[in-house]
C-alpha cells in the first residue's frame, strides 16, 4: 500500500494557501450573514401564517439556515478552478509524472481547497449567529447547539461524510472540466442542481410531498439535508444511521465513477500550452 504522506502534503499546502485569502473570507461572511437574515425573515413570516404546515420547527429551520450559510463553501457547486487552469496551461503534465494515484492526488487538493474556504467562514458565522446573537438578546434567531449528545455524536460522521461526498461530486466536475478545458459550462449545470437538490435552497421536506421519496434518496441529499437534520435530531436513531449509510453509499459510488472517468479522460488527454 502506498504511503498517505504525499496526499496529506497536497491537502495541507492547498489548505494553507487558501487560508491566506482573508479579505475574501470576510466578504463571504458578510454576504452570508445578510443572506441568512433575509432567509430567516422570510421563513419567520411563513411560519407566522401557518406553522402547522411546516415539517420542522422554526428554531430548527433557523439553525438549518445558519448551518447552511456557515458551510456554504463546502457545497460542490463550482469546479476547482486550479484544475481547469492546470489543463489549459499544460501544468497537468507534471501531475501525470508524479508516482501517485492521480485521482487521490486531485481529491486531496480539492478537499484542501474546499475546507480552507469553509473553515474561517464557519468559525465567524458560529461566533456571530451562535454566540453574539443570543448575547444581544436575539436568542430566538440564533444558531443553536446540536439537539443532545446523540445528535452531536452522529453529526461528526455526518459532517465527515458530507465533506467526502462533496469532494467526490467536485471530482466528477473537475474531470469534465479537464476533458472540456473550460469550467464555465460545468458550473452552469452543477450550480443549480446542487443548490436545489442538496437542500441548500430549502430543506428538502419543504418541497411538495409527492417528491419526497425521490428527494431523500438522491446523492445530493447527503450534502446538506441529511447532515443538518441529524444535527437537530430530526433524523435520529435508525433514520440517522440510514442517512449516514446513504451518504457513505453515494460517496463510494461517486468516487468509483470518478476513478473510471478519470482513467478514460487521462488516456485521451492532450497536452496544452508549451
Amino acid at each position: 500500500m502506498q504511503s498517505v504522506r504525499p496526499y496529506l502534503a497536497a491537502f495541507r499546502t492547498r489548505f494553507q494557501l487558501m487560508l491566506q485569502y482573508r479579505a475574501a473570507a470576510l466578504a463571504g461572511f458578510a454576504t452570508q450573514c445578510w443572506w441568512g437574515a433575509i432567509r430567516i425573515m422570510v421563513f419567520a413570516a411563513f411560519y407566522g401564517v401557518h406553522a402547522a404546515a411546516a415539517p420542522i420547527s422554526l428554531a430548527d429551520a433557523i439553525t438549518y439556515i445558519w448551518l447552511g450559510q456557515a458551510l456554504l463553501a463546502l457545497l460542490p457547486w463550482l469546479a476547482d478552478p486550479e484544475i481547469g487552469q492546470a489543463v489549459r496551461t499544460g501544468g497537468v503534465g507534471y501531475d501525470r509524472l508524479r508516482p501517485l494515484d492521480a485521482y487521490g492526488f486531485w481529491y486531496a487538493r480539492t478537499l484542501g481547497w474546499m475546507l480552507a474556504r469553509a473553515v474561517p467562514r464557519a468559525v465567524l458565522m458560529l461566533l456571530a449567529a451562535g454566540i453574539v446573537l443570543p448575547l444581544v438578546g436575539l436568542g430566538a434567531w440564533a444558531w443553536r447547539p446540536p439537539s443532545g449528545m446523540a445528535a452531536a455524536l452522529l453529526f461528526l460522521p455526518a459532517f465527515v461524510l458530507m465533506t467526502a461526498l462533496a469532494a467526490a461530486v467536485l471530482m466528477l466536475a473537475n474531470i469534465v472540466v479537464a476533458a472540456s478545458l473550460n469550467e464555465r459550462g460545468v458550473n452552469a449545470v452543477l450550480t443549480p442542481l446542487v443548490i436545489v437538490f442538496s437542500g441548500s435552497l430549502l430543506p428538502l421536506d419543504f418541497f411538495p410531498d409527492a417528491l419526497r421519496p425521490f428527494l431523500h434518496v438522491q446523492p445530493f441529499a447527503g450534502l446538506v439535508d441529511i447532515p443538518f437534520r441529524i444535527y437537530f435530531a430530526d433524523l435520529g436513531g435508525g433514520a440517522a444511521l440510514q442517512g449516514l449509510a446513504l451518504q457513505a453509499g453515494w460517496t463510494v459510488v461517486l468516487v468509483g465513477l470518478g476513478r473510471l472517468a478519470m482513467e478514460r479522460m487521462m488516456r485521451r488527454l492532450e497536452m496544452q500550452g508549451g
Partner: peptide, 20 residues
Amino acid sequence: AATAIEILGVFALFDRFGPI
C-alpha cells in the same frame, strides 16, 4: 437555469404554507 431556481423556492414555500 441558475437564476430560475429561486422561483422554485418561492413556489415551494407558498405551496406548503398557503397565502401570506
